[in-house]
Design a protein around this nucleic acid. Sequence first.
DNA 1: GCTCTTATGTTAACATCATACACATTTAGG
DNA 2: CCTAAATGTGTATGATGTTAACATAAGAGC
Lengths: 193, 193
Amino acid sequence: MSTSKSSPYHHGDLRAALVTAALGLLEESAIETVSLRAVARRAGVSAMAPYRHYPDKEALLAAVAQTGFDRLRDVLAHADSISGPDTALLGQGVAYVQFAIENPVLFRLMFGPPRRGRHADLRTSSETAFSVLVRRMTEQTHSAGLQPRILGYWSLVHGLAMLILDGQTPVAGFETPDTEVVRQTISSMIRFD
Amino acid sequence: MSTSKSSPYHHGDLRAALVTAALGLLEESAIETVSLRAVARRAGVSAMAPYRHYPDKEALLAAVAQTGFDRLRDVLAHADSISGPDTALLGQGVAYVQFAIENPVLFRLMFGPPRRGRHADLRTSSETAFSVLVRRMTEQTHSAGLQPRILGYWSLVHGLAMLILDGQTPVAGFETPDTEVVRQTISSMIRFD
DNA sequence: GCTCTTATGTTAACATCATACACATTTAGG
DNA sequence: CCTAAATGTGTATGATGTTAACATAAGAGC
């Protein structure tokens, strides 16, 4: 490998650097500003270089989304671990919404137009993230009809996250959703039986 | 006005025709194929004509999204009207999800990146649609803490719709969500007290 | 060390897109 | 009428995603 000259011809790990660059852009600005060329610029590389590592822009975005799901999995697992058995489910829900609030553009990308069909790795990562929620749900819920409850709870937190990102919470007193509002909203919908 | 010649210079009501054309494209293909030029082509007009009626592409898409919310309002109101008082809430929820399934690209556009801030009419239409749900919810729920329940129920159906559009229902037996699955999922999460 | 093959990065070129500007035509108001 | 405003057209510009041809670096086998 060349010594640390000003800019070696070969990047080193451009594949990963492109994902990092894209994540950086997603944190700073809207999704439409994340052009392939902008990502390449940020990685300090020519506009066409990404095509050596990803067949097209969609593939790069899929890799970015996958990283998002991996992070979400960690967030959910951590929230679960620091909660007692009786609050773990609520803790995960709050953490899920908080993740969306803290990473709004990334979150929208993760759940944007269907990409999972063509990218198996992405699907795997997303299912792994959800399995954290499903596992706790399975331990917590003792009633019959577990499947609808799993999908229902997941829908609840996911929808709440989406609506908050949209600024769509015109319910009086819930204009600025903080952790307490999120907790209250989720709590009002769950029961254990 | 010119008689009904082959193609009069003036369209007649291009402003509305553009929204119709865009809605047509949204029904047939993905969101990224809906370019301003494609909309103009479909309306049988030059590429620059839309700018006489909308300041930019975003403004046209906002008008399209607004039409979507108006339709959603009608769908919810109709579902409410054909249900008895005790099933109206569930009926609205099922109709909400069904609307999303039948108009996936439009639905994503409606809840896409924030547009409501800059388009007051769009915000009005969306709030009107939700008020149908809120009104029924207010009549139906007798417990204290109504506000969280409203936001919670709305989150539930909205999240369920989104997850179904994403193909994100890996819960066993719920791979292909039909009306019955939707009904069951919503039912499992609501209680009246 | 020397060559050759492959991986990786660059430059040039193209079609499409959103948009700005100048021009054409039609309609309406005096 | 006839002039001005409204509405549609044509051309031009810069950005974008993608393809293709070329350049360079790294390593394998000798």
